[in-house]
Design a protein around this nucleic acid. Structure first.
Lengths: 345, 345
DNA sequence: CTGAAAGCGCTTACAG
DNA sequence: CTGAAAGCGCTTACAG
């Protein structure tokens, strides 16, 4: 054990200086002479000194660390958001420490406790599917730890947020199908306990209504987690029902992708028979045959925005910044799954 | 600033006890009476006390944290390994803090420095593509911080490792194509600077040789990072060359997937004209048409093994455990991309 | 069963 | 320009 680390105490002894001077020299404190500063740094380098940031954190009551809570990092959206956070964080001298809730409320609560006791400087979180009550996040406010939610947020919890306009994005996606001339548009929806999936469903409905198409609840199918398997399952049920739509708006790319496979195998042409729009713009969506029309949810930008926001709040000396909601612009990426050969109108 | 946290000092004052007693009670120290222990815990809970783990870390010289360095977490393989690590870690009371090197040596070096100064209890790392010299990892040994490499490892660096047998897996994959009756087998290879991709190429060659098929270097194509785009690029070059293989072994799933798309569009049937085997068993591989035969690289198990290994080393009081190499068994998952309709032999 | 005291490695007002 | 000293919140031998 005994991490045999060099400490400033040893540097002080070796240089016949006080630890105060060493500490200041290492931080380029202006009151220390150029010469002393350089000599201290040289020796530190030579002996392989690294500051013990645990000690510094304790003393300064600051960890220079941002905690991130994501439902799961093996979902591309989240790892992409995290990359955006990291990019901003590293540039500004912050580290990022990542936790997965696995969409479990119990785990999410535990993580908030860990983060509280680890004294991160700020927390960026996307709440899990089981989470309806956010009271376990209230503690951060008491501790003056800034908090930013991203993507899945709670309406009833006053905190800074970085989101997309799910309603508008879904409206746009559905409108696109309508403008292709489609009238029988199905929706594969996410769990309605999550506001984002509810908003997407509302956007879908609103577009239909706007264009005088009756909303038919039999043409909406809810899934538990928008998995590949559920996408295929929905498609099979659609086929079995005999009511074949001419368009489908899916609440994510996974369900869209697997639904397309099922329809293709059943002999339907995509997009001529059934046009499909996904949601998220995962890398695979431009690889598939046909390539998938989808909403680009700007995950990376979302991460950047969340990172900038949390750092601004952390570095606001009196924590007086009001909570703020940033809405990231999405856009519809039109690809082959909605590009009709015989140019529709 | 001023995280307005309750400390054991305040608990001590409120209870008219010493901080020693409070500390012991909170940790169920046997020498403290049941009654006192319970009362302390009750008050702690009531006041919302959380231990300041930074202080405890400093005092105990232990952070209860495992640092993970991955090239990127938006690659499914890595996020899956991390999930395996986390599962083991959480069960044992460790936290996991994740860093991405983005395959940059500079960033990897910086991360090792951060981890050294943050005093993690152990480090699990997958070295980046630029990394040939591992000397920046040597410091961990000096600091008595256990280190485990996973997947991409350095032969010349004596450290515990969790790997798969890439040679054997590639051999198995290639042999499978040969047993289908294929003789013109192409290989889309990864960068040969990485030992794992070199080993896969060697396994491919060895299988050919074993079955008396001449190795033709024109039938091996190297990529920089095995991206989708490179898979498509290779496929297009193959088409342009006119030398159409009857089988392809790809060093990962991404290249296999996009190559298949290109061949299909050019009118070739998969697997009848060209049988394809990938490597990694990504979730998408069982969704595509055709579903992809691939090597399951057991990423989750790899993470579990790495987690168990690092914890064993951390908790070995004298750090006397010898370095160890664990080889995780892979298996070939046979799917449609190598299932010939007219039953081959 | 409980407490006083030292100390983890650092930072930073205060004094000179 | 430099140093002595206090203290961040905790743990743990030592003493009783």
């Amino acid at each position: 054990m005994a991490h045999s680390k060099i400490t400033i105490k040893e540097l002080a002894e070796k240089m016949q200086l006080s630890i105060s001077t060493i500490s200041r020299a290492l931080h380029d404190h202006p009151s220390i002479g150029k010469k002393t500063t350089n000599e201290v740094k040289k020796l530190a380098k030579k002996l392989g000194y690294f500051p013990n940031s645990i000690a510094s954190n304790l003393r300064r009551n600051k960890t220079q660390t941002i905690g991130v809570i994501a439902p799961r990092i093996d979902i591309y959206f989240h790892s992409h958001v995290i990359s955006g956070i990291e990019e901003v964080a590293y540039k500004t001298g912050y580290n990022v420490t990542i936790f997965q809730s696995h969409d479990s409320l119990e785990r999410e609560i535990k993580i908030t406790q860990i983060l509280q006791s680890k004294m991160v400087d700020g927390v960026i979180a996307c709440i899990g599917l089981e989470t309806t009550d956010c009271s376990h996040f209230a503690k951060f406010d008491e501790l003056n730890v800034p908090l930013v939610f991203y993507d899945r947020v709670s309406k009833h919890f006053d905190v800074s947020k970085v989101v997309i306009d799910d309603f508008e994005a879904a409206f746009k996606a559905t409108k696109h199908l309508i403008q292709l001339g489609r009238r029988n548009i199905f929706h594969i929806a996410g769990p309605q306990s999550a506001d984002i999936f509810k908003a997407r469903q509302e956007g879908y409905k609103a577009a239909l209504i706007k264009y005088n198409i009756a909303v038919n609840h039999k043409m909406i199918r809810h899934t538990a987690e928008l998995s590949y398997e559920e996408g295929a399952g929905c498609a099979k049920k659609i086929l079995a029902s005999g009511m074949i739509p001419d368009g489908i708006f899916c609440s994510n790319d996974y369900t869209a992708i697997d639904a397309i496979q099922v329809f293709k195998k059943a002999g339907y042409q995509i997009p001529n028979d059934i046009a499909v729009v996904g949601f998220s713009n995962y890398p695979i969506s431009k690889i598939l045959d046909p390539t998938l029309t989808t909403i680009d949810d700007r995950a990376f930008e979302m991460g950047q925005a969340a990172g900038k926001l949390i750092i601004r709040q952390i570095e606001d000396p009196d924590h007086t910044i009001a909570t703020e909601t940033i809405v990231i612009k999405t856009n519809l990426v039109v690809r082959d799954s909605t590009t009709i050969d015989s140019a529709g109108a």
